[in-house]
Write a protein that binds this DNA or RNA. Structure first.
Length: 488
RNA sequence: UGGACCAUAGCUCAGUCGGUAGAGCACGACACUUUUAAUGUUGGGGUCGUGGGUUCGAUUCCCACUGGUCCAACCA
């Protein structure tokens, strides 16, 4: 292929292939070999003048000045400047450097020194070619800004945008520290089916799939809860699962169809033992991952303080704070008028309870900025939990709310099989075949009093990294498939 | 699923009250042995998301579609 033809296909790509061929002519292997090296973060941390180092990375910038050049390499842990000088290299290595492009991988060997401008730098005495990039990286200063491209081509986002890489490093650290925290308290990690015969443990539309050999319909789980409780029946006393749930619902800035959840169950515990876990786990994560107990959240840089203990307030008291102490003495008509005066749309068929819940959802929750446990919730809204000991109309749960959003419910779990069956029946209505009879049977074998909680990990990561968009904490968020390329 | 907005060079962005487009980075050439968004000179690069309509003429106006963003409804 002539050079003109190559350039008509894609000038930039062709130019890089020309450089690749020239490197091959000089005796370089085009895609390299393993290279023993020290991570750049460690080179930086252990910097000593004149120390010999071997390091490797992707070329991020090159500043060529005739017989000397500076470049920056990145290995994902840090950036580091390297210095190339004609006097210090063989003719082949100096000539070869001219044919390197941004995005290529090299390994370097040399001496640490500090430039006149004060920049720690590797003076390169020898280098190896570790791999060619035949496509250009995005713009070096602004990085990759296009929101859609950052999700579809996450590798470019991670390559160019350090804040994105940092966010996913934090996500990994959060997951590791959740495990450390729970293991240290005697919890074991378990795995339960993500493909189930029926979708239980929550109210959401599932994804359906089909098993060929069994010739049977299956659903992707919407929650692991019913399997985890079977394990409590089986005698595991402290368990957790960290895994994906799948819900066939809308996608927006706080919802992805597959999302990661932590569920924890503790036999012989209840809501208060779950509360203790939250008040231990969140400060632990803040300390280990962020090194402090406060987070700057969102564009407004709101300060969230995770220093325990956290505020606890009864559901009804939270509503009274917003709507007045006489709220629960009002008639339905008075309550509706008062709610509508606050700008809510109230269905005329709603009773006092539903109006109250609308008030809580639309007005109260968003005002709970600092970590708060909302307790003693009307049983109609949480059918699978156990009633409060002193009031059968309220269930013994908490909703843990941070920055105006529900982060994590905690329960005193239902262990009465008859009450559980009734709650299922109310939930499914006519579809009695959707009741998980095997689960009821398990409860009939006896389940100890148990506390449980379920935390959305994506939202937790959002909270702790100050991110307001769930897609920014999920490496490959769900997007529509491209039918025709929107751009080339 | 409804409403508003967006899509221009590989990337980051200007722009055209309708006469087929510019900058910076990146890329090619030349110069330069401590630069760091290197610098100086110079050159190339675009069916302006896709399809239709109006028009002498559409990247620009209108319609549909595709993808995205935000808002509203469902879910965590």
């Amino acid at each position: 292929m002539s050079e003109e033809q190559q350039q008509s296909v894609n000038e930039y790509r062709a130019q890089r292939i020309v450089n690749l061929r020239k490197l091959e002519e000089l005796g370089f292997e085009p895609y390299g070999r393993a290279f023993e090296r020290t991570r750049l973060s460690e080179v930086r941390a252990g910097f000593e003048e004149d120390k010999k180092v071997r390091a490797a990375g992707r070329l991020m910038t090159i500043r060529r000045m005739g017989k000397a050049s500076f470049a920056t390499i990145s290995d994902g842990t840090a950036n580091f400047q390297i210095f190339i000088k004609k006097d210090l290299l063989s003719e082949t290595l100096f000539e070869g450097f001219k044919h390197l492009d941004l995005g290529d991988f090299i390994g370097v060997e040399g001496r640490l020194f500090t430039t006149r401008a004060g920049e720690p730098t590797i003076e390169v005495h020898s280098w190896s070619f570790l791999g060619k990039a035949i496509l250009q990286p995005p713009e070096k200063f602004h990085g990759l800004q296009d929101v859609e491209e950052r999700y579809r081509k996450r590798y470019l986002d991670l390559m160019m945008n350090p804040e994105s890489r940092d966010r996913f490093n934090k996500r990994s650290a959060i997951l590791a520290e959740i495990r450390n925290f729970l293991h240290a308290r005697g919890f074991i990690e378990v795995e339960t089916p993500m493909m189930q015969a029926q979708a239980g443990g929550a109210a959401a539309k599932p994804f359906y799939t089909h098993h060929n050999a069994l010739d049977t319909e299956m659903v992707m789980r919407i929650a692991p809860e019913l399997y985890l409780k079977r394990l409590i029946v089986g005698g595991f006393d402290k368990i957790f699962e960290l895994g994906k749930n799948f819900r066939n619902e809308g996608i927006d800035r706080t919802h992805n169809p597959e999302f990661t959840v932590l569920e924890v169950y503790e036999a012989y515990g209840d809501r208060t033992s779950m509360k203790a876990i939250i008040e231990g786990l969140l400060p632990h994560l803040c300390e280990k991952v962020l090194g402090r107990l406060t987070v700057e959240y969102g564009e407004a840089k709101e300060i969230l303080d995770f220093t325990p203990p956290y505020r606890e307030i009864a559901y009804k008291d939270a509503v009274k704070e917003m709507m007045g102490q006489d709220w629960f003495d009002l008639t339905v008509q008075q309550a509706r008028a008062k709610a509508e005066a606050q700008g809510l749309e109230i269905d005329p068929a709603w009773d006092h309870l539903l109006i109250t819940h609308e008030v809580y959802d639309k007005l109260v929750e968003k005002t709970l900025r600092q970590p708060t446990f909302v307790t003693r919730v009307p049983r109609q809204f949480v059918p699978l939990a156990k009633a409060c000991a002193d009031d059968p109309e309220l269930v013994d749960v908490f909703e843990f709310v941070v920055a105006g959003k529900e982060l994590c419910p905690g329960y005193t779990e239902q262990n009465d099989p008859e009450a559980q069956r009734k709650a299922f029946a109310d939930q499914v209505g006519e579809d009695t075949e959707k009741i998980d009879e095997d689960f009821i049977t398990a409860l009939e074998h006896g389940m100890p009093p148990t506390g449980g909680l379920g935390m959305g990990i994506d939202r937790l990561v959002m909270m702790l990294t100050g991110t307001e968009v769930i897609r920014d904490v999920i490496l490959f968020p769900q997007l529509k498939k491209l039918q025709t390329p929107s751009r080339q």
